Simulated scan of single mutants.
Amino acid sequence: MKVTIDSFGITPSGEIIERYTLDNGKGITVDLITYGATILKIATPDCGGNRSDITIGFDSIEDYLKKNHHFGSIVGRYANRIEGASFRLGGTTYHLEQNNGKNHIHGGSRGFDKYVWSAHVIEHEESASVVMQHISPDGDMGFPGTVSVQIAYTLDTMDTLTIDYSAFTDAPTVLNLTNHTYFNLSGNIGSPISDHVITVHADDYLPINEEGIPTPEAPQPVEDTVMDLTLPSVIGDKLYEKDPQLIFAGGFDHTYVLSKDHDKIVRLAAMLTHPDSGRSISIATSEPGIHVYTANSLDGKTKYRDGIVVPKHGAIAFETQHFPNSPNRPDFPTTVLTPEHTYTQKTKFTFNKVITTCNVK
């Protein structure tokens, strides 16, 4: 397998943004850029062999600088929300930026998605990787410790994109990383995802309050609730139910519990299928949670790649991660990272075709 490299533009400060294209020779390509260690696009064939992009993004670095919704980016230092934008660690209270009401979300106004990462390529016969690195200094957005992060994106000939995360710190800190790619498997990013079919292999989820913070009684069983996705469910059949959890968030914006411990076992977490195109992806992860987000904040006005306007609920993200507000919830799997340990995470996206339901020419 080979990786091609070209330029994706230059930032106002003069930093060159590189684009890396992974091609597995079987119709699947993954484009990455060094701004935010971002998945720029993923193109896969439908059941008729027609290749289309199945993600949302922009055509230029200028748009990523101005309009970014974390599309495809690595989110850190802390993916998701921290209540009150503060936490205590080692007897010290750390205050973070309040960028989600009075809470903190996704690492702040300049999280990991707003930096240019360094990158290098590793090529093998059956796979190819782009390895990106970033160093977050002590005090970055209020977080303690200097943290060195490495993200390896690997595409193989088995149609799997693997994201390997690793990080270490020189002082105790909290860390929760994820990738924030938005998927629409139809190949038409201007259409809603209501016709997609979703399965999440989780018996529990984290109910939230109006601010998106897990409630004190979280986790709770999904059984007999609208949040139950343990069997294949048409998203539109769930998304528009008048349930308080969906009303709070404007759709799905919830973490599903894959494990109540952090055992680092890679397990099948979710599957998404678009019956008409025959496209399907399965997501497996070593993380204790998967956050399902149905693009509730898209305004239906902004132009994305190729000038296409994406509606609210026009995509879905699967954010493999630890739980929201874990630094303030000792009952949740810990997100504390110390110098004696290395942060690791592995997430796999496998691209499949369900040809028995093919409705394309």
Rank of each mutant, 00 (worst) to 15 (best):
S277R: 12
L89Y: 03
D63I: 02
V266H: 05
G36C: 05
K102R: 13
A270N: 04
E319P: 01
F168I: 09
G190F: 10
D170G: 00
H274D: 15
V3S: 03
F183C: 07
V292W: 00
A270P: 04
A284H: 09
L65H: 03
K67P: 00
T338D: 10
T44S: 09
F351K: 02
R267L: 04
I28E: 08
S52Y: 03
I355F: 09
F8H: 14
I5G: 00
K361T: 14
V30A: 00
R279I: 11
F318V: 00
L239I: 06
F87I: 10
P192T: 15
H341M: 12
F252N: 00
K242S: 13
Y293H: 06
K26C: 12
D63L: 06
P324M: 10
D31C: 06
P311A: 10
V75A: 08
H124Y: 12
Y205V: 01
H124S: 14
T338E: 10
I61Y: 04
E83G: 14
I213D: 03
I198W: 12
T215V: 14
K353C: 11
G101W: 07
I33P: 04
I39S: 00
D46T: 12
I163D: 01
S13C: 03
V116A: 10
A119T: 08
A171M: 13
I74M: 04
H106C: 02
I5D: 07
T338N: 07
S297Y: 14
G57Y: 01
A295C: 13
S191A: 15
